[in-house]
């Protein structure tokens, strides 16, 4: 399997990259981890004329805490997230999710920015970021703009990032005490795309009432999806079996999975309910720990 010929550019500054994007327009593709793009090029499902490799641009590989915000550079590799102690202390969901993405060698290359910018509802980080209410920093030659994750995904492989822009940073608000998060997906074998995946973050007050909740779903809709009615079912309530069951029911009803080799639509609607219950419990346990 061999890609069609293309030109290769390797800018060392963002400005240089923007210049190249301007010059090549739609003919160019940004190369980050490359583990979605290169396989597609090898299969000749994608044949860009130019690859703009952003791996040599410094300043995009940080994981830093800035006040109540966690900032993750777009070029941070999955394996770096896996071992990022402070990030995982705040968001244990990252330990859950990275372990389930592809395999260790792929995680050494795959980047969080690429995972999101690919705009694929089968990827795992979109659901996580929806649950965490992340903000996405998109850079262009005229500067940066910050987009809430809810406004980031537009369609199948389509995001808010325009042809002359680059996703550069992910910003995640840190919630206070009593917050927990969790992710799980059913997969046919390790490293597979999800049959169904659920990301949950919630905050419980001293009485056990949900004061904040975010829920994202993986591979259960054409566009990465936040389970808003499920969130509403939990918000301001205590986590009784009935409340959780209602949230699960909403997610089953609201998602729009399709039949495929992983299972039927009905199975996936069932699974999302089961997984949501389990992730609510797991997140709540972590919140109370």
């Amino acid at each position: 399997m061999i890609p069609a010929p293309f030109d290769y550019e390797s800018p060392t500054t963002l400005e240089e990259a923007f210049g190249l994007l301007d010059r090549y327009g739609d003919e160019a593709k940004i190369l980050s981890g490359g583990h979605s793009l290169i396989p597609m090029m090898k299969l000749r499902f994608a044949s860009p004329e130019v690859l703009i490799d952003i791996n040599n641009i410094p300043g995009l590989s940080h994981i830093t805490k800035d006040g109540n915000t966690m900032k993750i550079g777009a070029l941070v590799r999955e394996s770096e997230i896996e071992h990022a102690k402070e990030l995982i202390a705040h968001f244990p969901i990252f330990a859950d999710v990275t372990k389930l993405i592809a395999d260790p060698s792929v995680r050494n290359r795959g980047t969080i920015g690429g995972n999101l910018a690919h705009g694929d509802a089968a990827n795992d980080h979109p659901a996580v970021m929806l649950a965490l209410r992340a903000n996405i920093v998109i850079s262009g030659k005229d500067g940066n703009r910050t987009v809430p994750i809810d406004e980031f995904f537009h369609g199948f492989y389509m995001t808010e990032v325009q042809a002359n822009e680059i996703l550069t940073e992910i910003q995640i608000p840190i919630h206070g005490k009593g917050t927990g998060s969790a992710y799980h997906k059913m997969e046919r074998k390790v490293g597979d795309y999800a049959t169904a995946g659920v990301a949950v973050q919630l905050t419980l007050d001293a009485n056990g009432t949900v004061t904040y909740v975010g829920i994202g779903l993986t591979n259960l809709s054409p566009v990465p999806m936040r389970a808003e009615r499920s969130e509403a079912a939990l918000l301001g309530k205590k986590l009784t079996d009935e409340v959780i069951a209602e949230a699960a029911k909403c997610a089953s009803e609201d998602c729009s999975p399709s039949d495929d080799l992983r299972g039927s639509e009905e199975y996936k609607r069932h699974l999302v309910g089961v997984l949501l219950k389990r992730m609510i419990h797991k997140a709540a346990e972590r919140a109370m720990a």
Binding site: M1, Y8, S10, L31, G34, H35, I38, P39, K42, L51, D53, N55, S79, P104, S105, V106, N108, R109
Partner: peptide, 20 residues
């Protein structure tokens, strides 16, 4: 699988130019 700067990577999914 090989090591690139000490990290295991799948060399079928990396361009030679990226190993510069």
């Amino acid at each position: 699988t090989i090591l690139m700067d000490g990290k295991s990577v799948k060399s079928c999914t990396i361009l030679a130019v990226q190993a510069n």
